[in-house]
Amino acid sequence: MTDLRIEQVDGETALQDWRHVHNTIIPTAVLSLDEVRESARRNRLEVAYLGDLLVGCSTVRPPTGDSSTATVIARVLPAHRRQGHGGAIYARGLAAARELGAEVIETVVLASNPEGLRFAQAQGFTEVERYLLPGDSVPFVDLRLN
């Protein structure tokens, strides 16, 4: 895991890179560039590179209102999995969520991504709910950190 660089999305190239990773891993909920821009206003979005090679991204949805729950999502492109990158991306997202005041941490994984589910469970998450978005056939899995 040499030279892994994780940085906050800032600028068009980073927005496009984040979108590429998201849409590759979540093909049932493809986002437009405008939707990613809107998400970046509400959430902390980061991209991860090995040198100059894009390997992953993350989303931290901060606690809102009276809630102390944040959502931390780490995504790694398939060719770069099982090399420690997901753990580094997740650890950084978890630290950011804690800095934002989160007391409860959740994540969400597409049910058709067994590697992502295993990763979340290995980090200490347990499933709390499965649901389908309108028009979808593959459920999302919400998990909570124990």
Score class of each variant (00 low, 15 high):
16 Q>R: 13
100 L>M: 14
23 N>W: 03
113 N>E: 12
74 A>M: 07
70 A>H: 01
81 R>A: 09
33 L>Q: 02
17 D>K: 09
60 V>Y: 04
75 R>P: 00
89 I>T: 08
84 G>A: 05
94 L>K: 13
59 T>W: 10
80 H>V: 04
82 R>G: 11
1 M>N: 07
28 T>D: 06
90 Y>C: 07
145 L>A: 11
102 A>M: 03
71 T>E: 11
138 V>M: 06
37 R>Y: 05
118 R>W: 14
97 A>W: 02
21 V>R: 00
81 R>V: 12
114 P>Y: 01
112 S>L: 05
39 S>V: 06
97 A>D: 08
124 G>K: 08
6 I>L: 10
105 I>L: 12
28 T>G: 05
73 I>S: 03
101 G>W: 09
12 E>G: 01
69 T>R: 15
115 E>D: 15
100 L>E: 09
5 R>L: 11
9 V>P: 00
17 D>V: 01
77 L>K: 14
124 G>C: 05
21 V>Q: 01
130 R>L: 14
73 I>M: 12
13 T>C: 10
74 A>L: 04
102 A>H: 01
100 L>P: 01
55 V>T: 03
37 R>F: 05
132 L>A: 05
130 R>M: 14
95 A>E: 11
30 V>L: 11
6 I>A: 05
44 R>L: 15
48 A>I: 05
20 H>W: 09
21 V>C: 03
108 V>R: 10
46 E>W: 10
41 R>F: 09
96 A>M: 12
103 E>K: 15
119 F>W: 13
6 I>R: 06
50 L>V: 14
48 A>M: 08
126 T>I: 11
55 V>E: 13
129 E>Y: 01
15 L>S: 07
56 G>W: 07
143 L>C: 03
97 A>C: 05
45 L>K: 05
121 Q>A: 10
117 L>I: 15
96 A>W: 03
52 D>H: 12
48 A>C: 06
64 T>Y: 11
49 Y>L: 06
31 L>W: 10
60 V>D: 00
37 R>M: 10
73 I>L: 13
120 A>E: 00
131 Y>V: 10
75 R>M: 11
32 S>W: 07
63 P>K: 06
10 D>P: 00
90 Y>G: 04
66 D>M: 10
101 G>C: 05
32 S>N: 07
55 V>A: 09
51 G>I: 02
57 C>N: 03
54 L>C: 03
122 A>T: 01
2 T>C: 04
64 T>K: 15
143 L>A: 06
138 V>Y: 01
73 I>R: 13
128 V>D: 10
17 D>R: 12
132 L>F: 04
